[in-house]
């Protein structure tokens, strides 16, 4: 689907996310973790950690492992690729990744 046809939702202002951290947004009842990385790069994945069932991934530490940009779950430290949602340690625990864009100072996520 072309980006303009995605169901974009404004979740917050860029300034509301401390660089190098994430926040959790509620979009259509879904918990979405939205991360702001250095260089104004944004990522969004499910916030619920499949291993624990807790809504916590936005509170994990972000970083890189090799070429991949990842977040580590704060509960069991399993890593999720921020571009794909893939769980590096246990692929069966992978989550969804969502398109994100910044418009002006708004951060938008597309959940479909």
């Amino acid at each position: 689907m072309a980006p303009e046809n995605l169901p974009w939702t404004v979740v917050c202002k860029t300034a509301e996310i401390l660089p190098g951290t994430g926040v959790c947004a509620l979009v259509d009842g879904r918990h979405i973790a939205v991360f702001r990385l250095a260089g104004e790069r944004y990522h969004a994945i499910d916030n619920i950690d499949p291993r624990s069932g807790a809504s916590v991934l936005a509170r994990g530490l972000v970083g890189s492992l090799g070429e991949r940009v990842v977040v580590a779950s704060p509960l069991y430290k399993n890593h999720f690729d921020l571009n794909t949602g893939a769980c590096l340690e246990a692929p069966e625990h992978s989550v969804r990744a969502y398109p994100v864009q910044v418009s002006g100072d708004d951060v938008l996520v597309a959940v479909s």
Partner: peptide, 15 residues
């Protein structure tokens, strides 16, 4: 202001 369950909602985490 970082202490909130959701950035775009005041409701608590219903999970």
């Amino acid at each position: 202001q970082r202490f909130r369950s959701f950035i775009n909602s005041e409701q608590p985490d219903q999970r």
